[in-house]
Design a protein around this nucleic acid. Structure first.
Length: 113
DNA sequence: AGCGTGACGAACT
DNA sequence: TAGTTCGCCACGC
C-alpha cells in the first residue's frame, strides 16, 4: 500500500498535461514541501505508470532524469517524444516553455505581461 | 528506534 | 562547463 504522501505525489503529476513536463521540485512545492528527494522516491514507486504520467516529471536543470519502467530512460524519452516533447542529448528541448507550473489552468486570465 | 538509501537540487571546486 | 559534495525528507530494514 501507498502512503498518504505518495498518493499526493501521484495525484499532482496526474495534473501535468500532455506535451508538457514538470519537475520533482515543482511537485514538492505544490505539495507544500521541500522534500524533493522524497518526491523522487515516491514517483519511482508509482505503480500506475504510464497511466499516471510519471514520465512527464524531469529534473529542474532540464535533464530528463531517471526512469524505472520499460527500458528505463530510453522508454521515458520515447513517451515524451510521442507527446511532442523533444529530447536532445538527455535534456528537454525548450525546457522552460514545456515546463508546467501547476498554475496555467488555475490562472483565469491576467493579460500575460 | 536508529540508520542507510534514493527517478533530486543547489552550491562548490 | 562538468563532476563532486552536502543537504533534504520520507521509507524500509
Amino acid at each position: 500500500m501507498a502512503t498518504e504522501f505518495q498518493r499526493r505525489v501521484w495525484e499532482a503529476m496526474r495534473l501535468i498535461p500532455r506535451g508538457r513536463v514538470s519537475t520533482y521540485g515543482a511537485i514538492a512545492k505544490y505539495l507544500g514541501s521541500d522534500a524533493v528527494r522524497a518526491v523522487g522516491t515516491a514517483v519511482g514507486k508509482n505503480p500506475y505508470a504510464p497511466h499516471v504520467p510519471c514520465h512527464r516529471v524531469v529534473r529542474s536543470d532540464g535533464k530528463v532524469g531517471n526512469y524505472s519502467g520499460g527500458e528505463g530512460v530510453p522508454t521515458k524519452i520515447a513517451y515524451l517524444k510521442e507527446e511532442g516533447v523533444e529530447v536532445r542529448n538527455g535534456r528537454i528541448v525548450d525546457f522552460e516553455e514545456r515546463l508546467y507550473r501547476f498554475e496555467d489552468q488555475q490562472v483565469t486570465r491576467s493579460a500575460g505581461s
